[in-house]
Design a binder for these strands. Sequence first.
DNA 1: CGACGAGTTGACGAAACTCAAGAGTCGTGG
DNA 2: CCACGACTCTTGAGTTTCGTCAACTCGTCG
Lengths: 222, 222
Amino acid sequence: MDQAIWATLRRNPFFGALPEELARQVVGGRGPTPFAKGQVLFLRGDRADGFQIVIDGWVKLVRQTPDGNDAVIALISAGESLAEAPVLLGGVHNVSAEAVSDGRVQRIDASRIIEAVKGDEKLAYAMLASASMRLRTLVDQVEDLKALDNTQRVARFLAGLVKRGERSARIELPYEKNLVAGRLGMTPESFSRALAKLRKLGVTVDRQIVTVDNVERLRGEI
Amino acid sequence: MDQAIWATLRRNPFFGALPEELARQVVGGRGPTPFAKGQVLFLRGDRADGFQIVIDGWVKLVRQTPDGNDAVIALISAGESLAEAPVLLGGVHNVSAEAVSDGRVQRIDASRIIEAVKGDEKLAYAMLASASMRLRTLVDQVEDLKALDNTQRVARFLAGLVKRGERSARIELPYEKNLVAGRLGMTPESFSRALAKLRKLGVTVDRQIVTVDNVERLRGEI
DNA sequence: CGACGAGTTGACGAAACTCAAGAGTCGTGG
DNA sequence: CCACGACTCTTGAGTTTCGTCAACTCGTCG
């Protein structure tokens, strides 16, 4: 297997916890599956018969609402995995996954994982850690949605992209503004306006690049 | 230990998965701890040195925002547990817990649980199931917040309280309207107005009792 | 060059929050 | 038994925020 792919897999908390040999065994001989922008990886309600680790590109987890609007639950990038919990518990997916860029995923059979987990309780911890992390980000999202207005959400989102300890920063938005807006639960127009409001706090935007003069000032606004 | 308490503990997915004897061992000789309305069980940032299962009463998980607003993340009642994930992972609480009524919790040492989990990978599954369930409710919440307006959220909340298969129902709100409003991410005033709007769909409210003439009509509104 | 998509900006209306006042309920104490 | 205050909930009025619709800019790509 390609070394770069392997390195990405190992960045995943689940695979990081596996001993090298066992990890290779779990993956099996299968190579990564490419996907194209717009492709649906699975739908809500599908049986979860394996989980997938993103190698390149971006995948969004969404809930479709009856009136056609998407609620973006999470955006997944390289090294992160999709649907650990339903796989292990033998359930169905409770969100849909759709590619928002071209990329690749490594698919991994449920049965192999379950077998591996049986053999090593450290893996169970790793799964828990992974689920726990997702829990945390969801809690953050719920808090944001309930307690912050659009501008504050954008400010927090930007602040979250700044590396710890930095005073000022040049941030590259990880994906299209359209998607950022969705992830933050607002329309693209509102996102644009929120950025405009943040200009007087020393935030400037050019294309995909956002520069923040003073991160503290941004944080103070939340 | 009191039989009723024990029965409540066994309703918890984690404890339901434990063999009887092991469960008793994990709990130890300790009895439940009473708490009073308004009491803080733990604060965000506290070290998580054990988890707690609610025996009676209600506990809310909240995030305080800098400007004093609470975001209610979840409301926990008898049989449900607090803070499984951070305990197992040896972390800190990422939400605060505050009692919204008098009640009792059974505290359980982290070390005992970790030991038990090491001995039996089924427990890890149980924890995962528990985390997964919480994940799902959070995903639901995120979807609701992003895609539904206040009235629709109230409608969905009420519909969720109706037992499956019932056509009309008499629902007792599980806690104060104030709290319901917070849980749904709106102000008490907005909650009240939303209920008023639902009146023309056959929803009547008296005190804590809500009656729904036709559940389908309610669901159709979402 | 022209078509297209992403992003921005403006105008407008709907939805929700805030502030404020009033109704109803409950417990306490006289 | 009643009066009072505390509390919850409701209702009204005014304001802000946000989404929608639409026009327009700008860069990309055929």
